[in-house]
């Protein structure tokens, strides 16, 4: 069957023989064992695995948050493992977005300020059209002046998603983004993430332990003991959001 590929399959992030070892001697733990994987542009990848399987370590290293013991990480065309802290920080600022499980927003800033913070750190002007697109897709238009304390968990995660999107990064890493949400907020957020991939062409790598959440992804990587044990394609990359077996799209629930 021929697939309609919206863009050429290029890598957003690639790891080569990525190895991370913690401790020495008796306490030596191999968290990642020569992992080589490509995350394709415009693809929504879920990483699953039991606790201690190395999924978080893989994400930390792939995102340039942590330095691997061996191997290389290429973000875009740049070798992240060869950079010093300053260049790596700037690389993250320009190329990588993050959504974390619980602590995601700065309590002292409004939703709008939180979303624009990465641009402010980089001293660049926001693109108003893109800003409007992002907040419209994420349904945040009437929440911009609220502070994190006044937002629900789902809204807060969507603000975090908007902040990750605003810089148009090469890739967004999401670490258990639904971990602290109830199931309806969780479905809603996952829907939005999927739309970001398929409508806005974003690349997302998500770590989760929830098979239901993983079901929204195009591709599923399974890790155990620091190795990839399965790499399944759940949906073809079509440039369109696949039909879900669940609730209707969009809107506040």
């Amino acid at each position: 069957m021929t697939t309609t590929i919206a863009q050429p399959l290029t890598t957003a992030v690639r790891t080569e023989q990525l190895t991370k070892i913690y401790g020495q001697g008796d306490t030596r733990v191999v968290a990642l064992d020569h992992v080589s994987v490509d995350f394709w542009r415009g693809e929504f990848t879920a990483i699953m695995g039991p606790s201690g399987s190395g999924k978080s370590t893989l994400m930390h290293c792939a995102a340039g948050l942590d330095t691997p013991t061996e191997g290389r990480v290429l973000i875009g065309q740049v070798d992240a493992t060869a950079l010093n802290d300053k260049s790596l920080t700037l690389l993250r600022r320009r190329r990588v977005g993050f959504i974390f499980q619980s602590f995601n927003l700065l309590p002292t800033m409004t939703a709008r300020e939180n979303i624009l913070l990465p641009l402010k750190l980089a001293r660049t002007k926001p693109d108003p059209a893109w800003f409007d697109t992002v907040i419209a897709v994420l349904g945040l238009t009437d929440r911009l002046t609220h502070r994190p304390g006044e937002l629900s968990g789902g809204q807060a995660q969507r603000v975090a998603a908007a902040r990750a999107l605003i810089t148009r990064p090469d890739v967004i890493f999401a670490d258990e983004p639904t971990g602290a949400l109830d199931s309806s907020s969780s479905d809603e957020l996952l829907d939005f993430l999927a739309r970001c991939v398929h409508e806005l062409g974003q690349t997302i790598v998500m770590v989760t332990h929830d098979p239901h959440a993983a079901g929204y992804a195009d591709r599923l990587l399974q890790l155990a003991d620091g190795r990839i044990i399965a790499d399944k394609r759940l949906h073809e990359i079509t440039g369109q959001t696949p039909q879900r077996p669940s609730r209707p799209e969009g809107g506040e629930l």
Partner: peptide, 10 residues
């Protein structure tokens, strides 16, 4: 969070 988002050490 700030460091992850691209805040430099400086």
């Amino acid at each position: 969070l700030l460091r992850a988002m691209g805040m430099t050490k400086g």
